[in-house]
Amino acid sequence: MFFRVMESSRLPDLVRGFAQDHEVIGPVAKDDRFVFATIDDPAELRLDYDTTLLPPKKLFFPAEDQLMRFRVADNEVLDDEVFAAPRVLFGVHPCDINALLLMDNIFLKDYVDPYYKARRDATLIVGISCVPSEECFCNAWGTDEAHWGFDIFLTDLGDRYFISVRSVKGAELLDDFVETREITDADTADFQRVTAERKEMFAEDLDTSQLPLLLDAKFDSPVWDALGERCLSCGACSMVCPTCYCFDVRDDLAPDQKTGTRSRLWDSCQFSEFSAVAHGQNFRDSRASRVKYRYYHKQWGYLSKFERVLCVGCGRCARACAANITPREVVSALAKGGFE
């Protein structure tokens, strides 16, 4: 990796430069919250955002995604092409960059998912440093920093950006559109200072060291029953999660019933039908078992395959849960054997 420094005032030039050959998508305000949306004017970009309502996964694995068109009569696929135009996702926090890397393990390994891959391949990622908010606990998983998974990453040093350059494409675009300079010792010192200051800003540490073991050893913990009583089974946590990838598949026929589309839709393990099989057996028919499974899969199931937990501590589920069930609370209750 190599590094450059860019004056903060140059940022609009960089965005306009990217926009020449790419759709630029970045954080913009929606009331008092933020969403990733197409940027027409660099002034719309809100790089000071805390977190977005939905994570970037919506751009690679949309909430409703047509897989193919088909003809009923001979059960034939008419079209399964995926069209992905070049784009830049500008202003992604480290947690969300890390989340995409976790999604990659599912969608880009073994059976490669062509829909996700096409969109991933067509998208450049520009990371941006952030300041932790109350709900953030990315530091608990070591996902508070992104070391890869971006083309360039901008760390805000106040009057200038310290730019980490990861990809050839990122380097080229940076060179083409904006004036940067080599880093100096002073830049590096400021980078170190800013990074250290940020680390201090996180709320208390969340001890996750024994979590996988606890999940198994306390599989029957009453903590899950208590959470099950509170859980609304609404699935909001799964929808806003940057690493939840479960989906349902639905066929829809055209009004003439001759052709149709097969689509996938975000699904949630919190819904009662999620684990039911055709004969009526439901392997997770209690709310408690479903809340438990969400944690069990994220903190142990995925870990057992990919050596990382399937959580980046972005805090979206904590904000979205009307019942106020938060990972911080769940993890500590499980460790202590009850709620405070």
Partner: peptide
């Protein structure tokens, strides 16, 4: 299931 999940996908506040 309740309405909340699909509502979240629409990025409603």
């Amino acid at each position: 299931e309740p309405m909340c999940a699909i509502c979240k996908t629409k990025e409603n506040i």
